[in-house]
């Protein structure tokens, strides 16, 4: 294997085309007789993906360039942590919001879950990012959700999670 990234990209594309084919199989019969059935467009796309996936894999095997897209392990670790934190942030917002809504206390249901989850996410993300001054971390983490809640929810009347 001469270019791992290209080979993996090609194989993932082939895998995705297989997933697409499975989606087509799961799709039921069209409700009406039509000139072009609903999955005809998808079939062409999946076939195209499969062909391009094969070409990409073949090119990965034949190209001599060795490219590293993740040059720094420490940075990559931090990115994985940040991505994981972002997922936890989304999940915490959803869970906390449901929990506080179920208490029936009006002021608790009003953006408090979003504020807490955002504060928790920012504290963790800033620490992962290498910020070390406690006052700076707390101030930024409290300031950002407060501004968002005020601007979006109060001023622009946008519903927050």
């Amino acid at each position: 294997m001469r270019n791992t990234t290209d080979v993996v990209t090609g194989l993932l594309t082939i895998a995705f085309s297989a997933l697409g084919a499975w989606g087509i199989v799961l799709t039921g019969e069209p409700s009406e007789a039509s000139v072009v059935e609903p999955t005809s467009f998808t079939k062409a796309i999946v076939a195209g993906l499969f062909i391009l996936g094969c070409v990409q894999t073949w090119m990965g095997f034949t190209t001599k360039r060795k490219i590293s897209y993740w040059p720094n392990r420490a940075a990559m670790k931090k990115i994985i942590y940040t991505a994981a934190l972002f997922f936890c942030y989304a999940s915490l917002t959803v869970a906390l919001s449901d929990l506080l809504k179920n208490t029936g206390i009006l002021w608790l249901a009003d953006n408090v879950a979003f504020w807490i989850a955002t504060f928790a996410f920012l504290v963790s993300a800033l620490l992962v990012g290498g910020r070390r001054k406690p006052l700076e971390i707390v101030l930024v983490s409290a300031f950002v959700p407060t501004v968002i809640v005020f601007t979006f929810s109060r001023f622009f009347l946008i519903t927050l999670p």
């Binding site: 697409g20 799961l26 799709t27 039921g28 409700s31 998808t42």
Partner: peptide
């Protein structure tokens, strides 16, 4: 066009 569900994986 016809409103059929497709590629939704249920």
């Amino acid at each position: 066009i016809y409103g059929d569900l497709r590629n939704t994986f249920d």
